[in-house]
Design a protein around this nucleic acid. Structure first.
Lengths: 130, 130
DNA sequence: GCTTGACTTCGAGCGCGCTCTAAGCAGCAG
DNA sequence: CTGCTGCTTAGAGCGCGCTCGAAGTCAAGC
């Protein structure tokens, strides 16, 4: 096994982080170079990335934002605010609220489309049953 | 005015169809060349497209499928089945059912993410209120 | 000491879904 | 008849978000 296992302090290699998060190692490096991470993960003396629990928790949030349609650019803006530290909370709040509004609108729209699709399905069901 | 208005029989120019549907004329032609339309719209003697109500109704369905995440390729498959006519109803039904399952799964996932985002927002609200 | 394999950086490539440009023609206003 | 606008086609270009490849380094096992 090449598990690069958690050495007690909660640090994992990029491969294990990727597996846990369901991302590719490429994507993890990409997120980092694109400024989506609040802090770059620590490195071993040899320059290899070591992700701790805080890194992983943050990336889960990034995944949630991405999965709900927030563009990479905006996740970066949010990460920048968090990096900037105290005082940026109102801006972070505004950003997340705006995103939530968009997600709610999208949910409503998809739900509406879903109704129409279901109606179409029911039409075919009646047709096929005959 | 250059409204290219409906001449009684429900035929409209590509510009008006685009406006009604909220698409660009480019996108309408793209959908046509990509095989997403069941039948190509009729043409004037000069070769200009004239969309009738059936064309428009179909495109609205295409928009619903696209807006719920169905890839262009799959919309084309569906359109091909419809074009093939009688006997393809079970296949159409299967395609739409599979899509509905994906949409339902996506809705559940987004709703879950939304909960986490809302929790984050509430955390900031408490912090900012202080 | 050598091989193996996971890591590193940098940059090119790709799939998707349009979007836009260019060049040319049709049809209507003045 | 002259412009002007809006259509036509074919094909190039683009923004997004990764994804992949190349070339090199490092640590561990045999």
């Amino acid at each position: 096994m090449t598990t690069t296992e958690d050495r007690g302090t909660g640090h994992v290699s990029i491969a294990e982080a990727a597996q846990r998060l369901g991302l590719s190692t490429h994507a993890l490096r990409y997120y980092e170079t694109e400024g989506l991470l609040v802090g770059a993960p620590a490195r071993t003396p040899a320059g290899r990335r070591r992700y701790d629990e805080r890194d992983l928790t943050w990336i889960v949030m990034v995944q949630r934002l991405r999965a709900t349609g927030m563009p990479v650019r905006e996740v970066r803006e949010y990460a920048e605010l968090v990096r900037a530290g105290r005082g940026t909370e109102p801006a972070r709040l505004a950003l997340l609220r705006a995103h939530r509004e968009r997600v709610l609108a999208q949910l409503a729209e998809v739900t509406d489309h879903l109704g129409a699709i279901t109606a179409k399905i029911e039409g075919y069901e009646r047709q096929v049953d005959r």
